[in-house]
Computed example of a mutant assay.
Amino acid sequence: MDISLAHEASQRTLKQRNLLALICIVLGILVVVMFTAASTRDREVILQPILPSEMALSSSGVTPEYLEAVTRDTAQLALNRSPETMQYWLDGIVKIAAPEARGALKADLMKIVGEQEGSQVTQFVTIDWIRTDPDALTSQVGGVLHTIVGSRDVRREHKIFQFNWKYTGVSLRLKGFGVVVKKEEDGE
């Protein structure tokens, strides 16, 4: 009789173990499905108060309007500097840079800070136009770059600046920027 009771108890324990294992497998599959669904789902953020119109961000890609707005603000930050604002200028640009571009970008900016240390050179840009390419994640800004030494406007040049971007999730990050140099044709 003891053997049959022991056998019954072991069979109950075996059934409970198998049921628990089945529940664990089902829960594991559900967790994998939930993480997969959460990571592939498009995220969307609505921006409103500071922009002229409502703008939506989606993890599926950047819109031309958003790229233009960010380019405009970044161009104002990157192309307007004075001796009094050099640290703010440097910190602001590094803050919006893509993580993999921060080191090289900061090194280039530190050279400019070193060159302008102790000078009275101020630069600002008046933007004429902005062109964006959301597929290539680039944008160009055309405008007059003013250089002022002391209180004299010593140079005004029309220049084109290019900004290269990285878009991950709903985050647009600066990879680099610079002046577009036109290639001179042979014979000129």
Rank of each mutant, 00 (worst) to 15 (best):
W165Y: 05
Y88M: 09
F35N: 13
L20I: 10
A136I: 05
L90C: 03
G143D: 04
P49R: 12
G143L: 04
T71D: 01
V32H: 02
G92N: 07
L30A: 11
G142S: 13
P83M: 03
A97L: 05
A78R: 00
L22K: 15
V45L: 10
S39F: 07
G114E: 08
L109G: 04
L20Y: 11
D91C: 01
V125H: 03
E68L: 10
P83Y: 02
A9W: 10
A107Y: 08
N164S: 10
I112A: 14
A104K: 15
S59A: 04
Y167S: 00
I148E: 10
E68V: 02
D91M: 02
P64Y: 06
G143S: 05
S10F: 10
K111E: 09
A78S: 07
V70F: 06
A56G: 10
A56T: 15
E65Q: 12
L172H: 01
V70M: 08
A101V: 05
M34K: 14
A104C: 03
A75E: 00
P99T: 05
V121G: 05
S10E: 13
D42Q: 11
G118K: 04
Y167W: 02
I96S: 02
G114A: 08
A38L: 14
H7L: 11
R155K: 14
L51Y: 14
A75P: 00
A21N: 15
E8P: 03
P64C: 05
K175L: 14
D153E: 13
L47P: 05
T122H: 07
A104I: 12
R156I: 04
G178D: 01
L30I: 11
Y88V: 13
G143A: 04
S4I: 15
K183E: 13
W129Y: 11
M34P: 02
A98Y: 05
E115V: 13
K95Y: 11
Q120G: 09
L137R: 01
N80M: 05
I3V: 10
Q87N: 10
D153Q: 12
D91S: 08
Q48N: 15
E54Y: 04
D73Y: 05
E8L: 14
P64M: 04
Q162M: 08
G178S: 04
N18H: 09
L77C: 03
A21S: 14
A38E: 11
G114H: 04
S171Y: 06
Q123G: 08
I50H: 07
I160W: 02
F35P: 01
Y88P: 00
I93A: 00
T36A: 12
I148Y: 07
G61F: 06
D91L: 03
